[in-house]
């Protein structure tokens, strides 16, 4: 058991590309869930259209990567409208089911044989992000010190990912502290009251869905670029659940909640992964209990357990305001 290497894995994990990408997607979800009170359980669908926007544009149509990202964002706007117009009038719990269903419908169609010429069906598409890596200003082999050593490739995507996360967080901060955000929070507290004061609740929810959706699509594009491949089945509802875990862990309706949440989430997940791997291979945990191949599953069982305990004992998350919590626990 090499604790130093386990910890350094975990430390890398908490700032790595995945943490940045999930933080970005969670910033979008925080706009929906944290500020508007929309139970959007289809955030992964926005990531899906963002990812395939890039992949299809580059791999199938031969367009430049930048155009692909824009197409992904365009798809997210269309999706937000198509999804929002029928479902945003529904009660919160209905909305949750309708959005999760919409995400699954999208995944089924992207992986279907109909879409195969465009999306590559179940096999997906790959090798479309060279345009991104050609722009990489880092040319060395590795950067950093000690545990924080990343390849030039990872560093490039981390820089872009975290910059986007910070930029989007600042944008959300500006909006939330404007009267626009005040209406959004009013909608979260009580739709009818907001409507009785002359606010077009439906319009604000739709704007919120579009904004958070675009941020989600950006995260999706980045995810596709990071692994240089898209596969429809990686965009399943579980991704949305992880995003909820991240938002709640950091603190819903806190500007830096999703960022902090993602950093901690990925620290814990990578730590568990490394630890379990080391523990099973060194025999600390006998293979009759957990085998090496089960580590992935065990890790996510822990995520589930963590989400439960968090929601039971600290539903406001780390940055949550105790005062707010007393009023109404979400």
């Amino acid at each position: 058991m090499d604790f130093i290497s386990i910890l350094s894995d975990a430390a890398r994990g908490m700032f790595g590309p995945e943490a940045a990408i999930y933080a970005l997607a969670a910033v979008g979800l925080n706009v929906h869930f944290g500020y508007t009170g929309l139970l959007n359980f289809g955030q992964v669908a926005f990531m899906l259209v963002g990812a395939y926007g890039v992949a299809v544009s580059v791999a199938t149509w031969g367009l430049p990567l930048g155009v692909g990202v824009l197409i992904g964002i365009g798809c997210a706007v269309v999706l937000a409208l198509v999804l929002g117009i029928p479902t945003l009038r529904l009660r919160g719990d209905y909305l949750a089911i309708a959005t999760i269903a919409a995400g699954e419908i999208l995944r089924y169609f992207y992986r279907s044989s109909y879409a195969q010429p465009l999306t590559g069906g179940v096999y997906g598409l790959r090798q479309f992000a060279d345009g991104f890596y050609n722009l990489n200003p880092f040319t060395g082999t590795s950067y950093g010190f000690g545990a924080f050593t990343f390849s030039a490739r990872s560093l490039w995507i981390m820089v872009v990912g975290w910059s986007l996360t910070v930029l989007c967080s600042l944008l959300v901060w500006l909006l939330i502290h404007a009267p626009w955000g005040r209406v959004l929070r009013a909608v979260r507290e009580d739709e009818l009251a907001a409507r009785s004061l002359g606010k077009n609740v439906y319009g604000f929810k739709l704007q919120s869905l579009v904004l958070g959706g675009i941020i989600g699509a950006l995260a999706g594009s980045l995810l596709a670029i990071n692994v240089q491949s898209v596969q429809p089945d990686s965009y399943n509802p579980v991704v949305t659940f992880y995003l909820y875990a991240i938002v709640i862990l950091g603190g819903a309706s806190r500007i830096w909640g999703p960022v902090l949440g993602s950093v901690i989430f990925w620290f814990v997940v990578t730590f568990l992964d490394s630890f379990l791997r080391a523990a099973t291979s060194s025999g600390l945990i006998p293979s009759s209990i957990i085998e090496g191949s089960d580590v992935g599953a065990v890790r996510f069982a822990f995520v589930g357990l963590g989400l439960m305990l968090l929601m039971i004992f600290k539903p406001a998350g780390i940055l949550g305001n105790r005062k707010e919590l007393r009023l109404d626990v979400r």
Binding site: D9, E18, L223, Y235, N236, V239, Y242, T270, R277
Partner: peptide, 11 residues
């Protein structure tokens, strides 16, 4: 089977 801390949970 055994992902390496990445985005593999989807598959």
């Amino acid at each position: 089977g055994s992902g390496s801390g990445g985005t593999d949970q989807g598959s």
